[in-house]
Simulated assay, not measured.
Amino acid sequence: MNPLTGLPMSRPDLLRQRPVLVSIDNHPDARPQAGLTAADLVYEVPAEGGITRLLALFVTQRPERVGPVRSSRHYFLDLALEWDAIYVHAGGSPQHYARIVRTGLDDLDGVRADPRGGGRRVFTRDARRKMPHNLYASLPVALTAAEERGWALTAPPRPSPFAFRSAGEEPTGERVDRLVIHWPGWRRGWVRYRWTGAGYLRETAFGPHVAEETGDPLTPANLLIQLVPARTIAGDAEGRLEVELAGEGRLLIASGGRLREGRWQKASPTAPTRWLEADGRPVRLASGPTWVHLVPASARIEASGPPSSQGSGEEPAEGAEGLEGTGGR
């Protein structure tokens, strides 16, 4: 069983592949993105201005095309560190560069030349798309470059951070068919999920969020909304954020059309995140892909029961149940 999806595997040896974490552009002009459906886990993480990045974690699959690859922020490194991942990105904030030299992370940067060589082969520009939303990475090529540099390509398999429901086991929590995250900083920066009976169909203010490979909407089986402390960095001209991913806090768990509360814990930047039910046990999810959303604790989150009749391009209506990031229901 894949410990991150709960799905059966015909080749358990793939679990010994070293994780690769890729920073993927999530600007509207970057969609649809490539590679997300091959990821074992996807994070959505705030950047500045209400835009988010998608950090895709690849363990069992090595797609030929992933991207568009975009820049890093210093708190993204906490996610690469906890997986001991090879980190693929294209540039970064000043805070990223100030920190990464102290971490010892193995990273492939599509913007800054690496004196060790080999990095240029990892990235290509797609002439059909406009810069800066057209830089792509090939993971097989990235791993060849990593091997040339002497980096480890294998790692011991990790225990699953999740528990998975057995066949016929009913999910717990309140019935919720529609969930909206309002990312702070941009009126059109919200993301909406609709429960389909089989997964959570993802929509943005620009319509359904689809996969490049198939044109089908992205539909994770589970959503984890991890509420984290976040603030604007004082004096930063671009409005960049300080986001604290180490610590503990409130967790919203959406699975099987139900929503309930839990807790998250991360003891240090290098420690694994623990996603927990209210009773302290690992979260219990449906088999299938999970998306983890690292949402500022001040963000507004809406949850409602029966599906609304809104069009996918409209701003979510007021009046749905609000879940304040720092308070109760």
Rank of each mutant, 00 (worst) to 15 (best):
G168E: 07
A137G: 04
T154D: 08
G168W: 00
P140Y: 13
E170C: 04
M131T: 09
S166I: 08
A146D: 12
G189N: 14
R125F: 05
W151E: 08
G189P: 11
R128V: 02
E148M: 14
L153F: 08
T154K: 07
S160I: 01
R116L: 14
L135E: 15
P157D: 11
Y136V: 00
V122G: 05
V122N: 00
V180S: 04
D114Q: 03
A137M: 09
P157I: 06
P132D: 14
A146L: 09
R121D: 02
P161I: 00
A155K: 08
G185P: 00
W183F: 10
R102E: 15
L143T: 14
G118V: 08
D177W: 03
V101H: 10
R158P: 07
V111P: 08
H96W: 12
G117T: 13
M131C: 00
W190V: 02
H182N: 13
P161N: 03
P115D: 09
R128P: 00
W151C: 03
P94T: 02
F162R: 05
A146T: 15
R112H: 10
I181G: 03
A167M: 00
R175V: 05
S138H: 14
R187G: 06
D109V: 02
D107M: 11
P159H: 07
R112P: 02
E169Y: 10
G104I: 02
G110H: 03
V180W: 05
E174K: 09
L139P: 02
R112S: 10
W186A: 00
A152T: 14
Y97W: 15
A127Y: 14
W190F: 09
V141S: 08
T103F: 02
P132M: 09
T144D: 15
P94W: 05
D107S: 13
T172H: 07
A155N: 02
I100F: 04
G168S: 11
D114K: 06
F123K: 10
D109Y: 01
I100R: 01
A146S: 15
R125H: 06
G150Y: 11
T103D: 14
T144P: 01
R112L: 13
L135F: 12
F164Y: 15
T144G: 10
D107R: 06
L179E: 04
A145F: 04
D106S: 01
S166V: 10
F164C: 06
R178S: 00
P132F: 04
Y97T: 14
V122D: 08
P94N: 04
G119Q: 01
V191L: 00
F164D: 09
W151G: 05
H133R: 05
A152W: 12
P115F: 05
E169P: 03
L179C: 05
A155P: 10
V101T: 12
R125D: 04
A142E: 09
F123C: 13
A98T: 03
R187W: 13
A155L: 08
H96N: 13
R102D: 14
H96E: 14
R125I: 00
G104D: 11
L153N: 03
A145T: 15
D109M: 07
P156V: 12
A137P: 00
